[in-house]
Design a binder for these strands. Structure first.
Length: 233
DNA sequence: AAATCGGGGCT
DNA sequence: AGCCCAGATTT
């Protein structure tokens, strides 16, 4: 008997994989009608803008960032512009959206790295982990947007959608839960991973909200574990 | 694992 | 008034 048959090659059951594929299909369909129109998603947005905006989005509403997006990138049109600008100038633009001291450090660290590497970040996760201000989420964003890899933007929102639809994760920390990580990867493993990521984040923000989720009108309520449990009360 | 950064919006 | 928001870093 092959030993591989008993070893856990995948965290996901076949049933879970099928359900995730269904989830992906519904999210993409939902996205066509309900997706948000955000400035960093426009075709003209550069890799610089897409990566830099991820720092602006940390613990900050997308709408808040959208409001200062044009102003920010007009003042800092490139990694070099940030690297050459006085720190106080960068901090000043960041103050209205909060976390300005941390964000200024992070963005300047990224700009310094980019300035020395012609705007190119590593395409290997192990190397990305060594870049300052790059955690798991930003690493995935870089792999997704700059290198075209099908990586999931696993934040609390994507986690909530997957966990409600399938089941809660085991570990407290999203980044260290193997099952959740693999589920998220499986979700975006398709021909249009960017669309799936945006669809999931928008769906989480507009429909599958933390408080008062719109389960009544949800296109997933028939198969969603969370929604199904609601009707039992 | 828990605290911290932080201003603004929503309840 | 209190809670939450496209996380990463430090303790």
């Amino acid at each position: 008997m092959p030993r591989a048959r008993f070893s856990k090659s995948s965290e996901l059951t076949r049933s879970e994989k099928l359900r995730i594929s269904h989830l992906r299909s519904r999210l993409l369909n939902w996205f066509v009608e309900n997706g948000r129109d955000l400035p960093w998603r426009s075709p003209g947005a550069s890799d610089y803008e897409k990566i830099c905006v991820e720092v602006l989005l940390q613990r900050t509403r997308a709408e808040t960032v959208a409001g200062m997006y044009r102003n920010f990138f007009a003042q800092f049109p490139s990694w070099n512009a940030i690297a050459l600008a006085p720190v106080g100038e960068l901090e000043g633009v960041l103050k209205p959206i909060g976390l300005w001291k941390r964000r200024a450090r992070s963005i300047r660290a990224l700009a310094s790295y980019a300035a020395e590497h012609d705007g190119q970040f590593p395409s290997e996760p192990s190397e990305l982990a060594q870049v300052p201000a790059v955690g798991q989420y930003v690493a995935n964003a870089i792999l997704l947007f700059q290198h075209g890899q099908p990586r999931p933007l696993v934040d609390i929102n994507m986690a909530r959608v997957i966990e409600r639809y399938l089941r809660p994760r085991k570990l407290a920390d999203i980044r260290h839960d193997p099952w959740l990580q693999e589920a998220a990867h499986w979700l975006v493993r398709c021909d249009e991973p960017v669309q799936v990521n945006w669809a999931t984040l928008d769906f989480a923000a507009l429909s599958c909200r933390t408080r008062n989720p719109l389960c009544q009108d949800c296109c997933l309520k028939k198969k969603c574990n969370f929604a199904c449990n609601l009707h039992l009360e």
